[in-house]
């Protein structure tokens, strides 16, 4: 009880969110989901209002809350929608919102790469959905999710555990803005100076603070420090494309 009293701000949105998601999951006949939607909004609101801390810069905060809100709500809608085509569309929304968050985190290249890669992926997926799902029509498996209660509960327990780590408790919150598990992470200033012991490639001059967030810095890192890994990733792509061709049904083997 003591524990609940201390952490009710953490537990409450978890319970509400779990209820909302479980309720929204497709199961049997379609039903009115207004209450669940409201509860879900409440949960998201509580999380946004209490757990997230404004950084101070108004524009930054506004953009962050916008993108993250869109991403979370889009994610909920994506996983709960009865129609896979709309799921795909909501996924596109989530991807765009995440790209926006990338931008806020000084990763413009990744933001654009994500949009480009996923735009291709999403369109292809969308085409598949239209092609296959329209053939199948309204299907049983889209209307019935499996054990939504249990899965949602497990998922939200995991989320609760993660947030419990990330969010500082009240007495800890007072002295320092960064507390909890995150406070164990060394600061940037501490990282930069001493040589790494852990086997992570030593940062070259390209990855120092002045190149951070630029294409140049990322290129230096990728083709300097991680050249071998990049080659491997390229090989992986090649293998995957060959594999996809092999796995996919041949035209000669009949109509889809």
């Amino acid at each position: 009880m003591q524990w609940l009293k201390e952490h009710w701000l953490l537990v409450l949105p978890m319970v509400l969110g779990a209820f909302a998601v479980a309720r929204l999951m497709p199961k049997g006949e379609p039903r009115s989901s207004l209450v669940a939607r409201l509860v879900g909004l409440c949960a998201v609101g509580i999380v946004g209002g209490t757990l997230l801390q404004p950084a101070g810069s108004v524009l930054n905060d506004a953009l962050f809350f916008l993108f993250s809100g869109v991403a979370v709500l889009g994610a909920i809608l994506m996983i709960t929608h009865r129609n896979p085509a709309y799921s795909a569309l909501w996924f596109a929304v989530v991807t765009l919102a995440v790209s926006g968050l990338f931008l806020l985190q000084s990763a413009p290249f990744l933001a654009s790469a994500t949009v480009i890669v996923y735009a291709g992926a999403i369109i292809v997926t969308f085409l598949f959905v239209l092609m296959l799902a329209q053939q199948a029509g309204i299907t049983n498996y889209d209307q019935n999710s499996r054990q939504p209660g249990v899965a949602t509960f497990t998922g939200f327990v995991l989320l609760g555990a993660l947030l419990f780590v990330l969010v500082p408790s009240k007495e800890q919150a007072a002295p320092a803005p960064i507390t909890g598990f995150v406070s164990l992470v060394p600061k940037a200033s501490q990282v930069a100076q001493p040589p790494h012991q852990s086997g992570i490639p030593q940062s070259t001059s390209a990855t120092t603070a002045e190149n951070f967030g630029t294409m140049r810095g990322l290129g230096r890192s990728l083709f300097g420090d991680y050249l071998f890994a990049v080659e491997l990733a390229g090989t992986l792509l090649l293998v995957a494309s060959i594999g996809a061709i092999v796995i996919a049904p041949k035209r000669s083997s009949g109509k889809l």
Partner: peptide, 24 residues
């Protein structure tokens, strides 16, 4: 069922995480 196996994995992760937190 693949989802079921995934659920068990997730359960394991949750338990592991909670235990680790208690230790920390």
């Amino acid at each position: 069922l693949v989802s079921h196996y995934a659920w068990v994995m997730l359960l394991g992760v949750v338990l592991f995480l909670i235990q680790m937190l208690r230790a920390l």
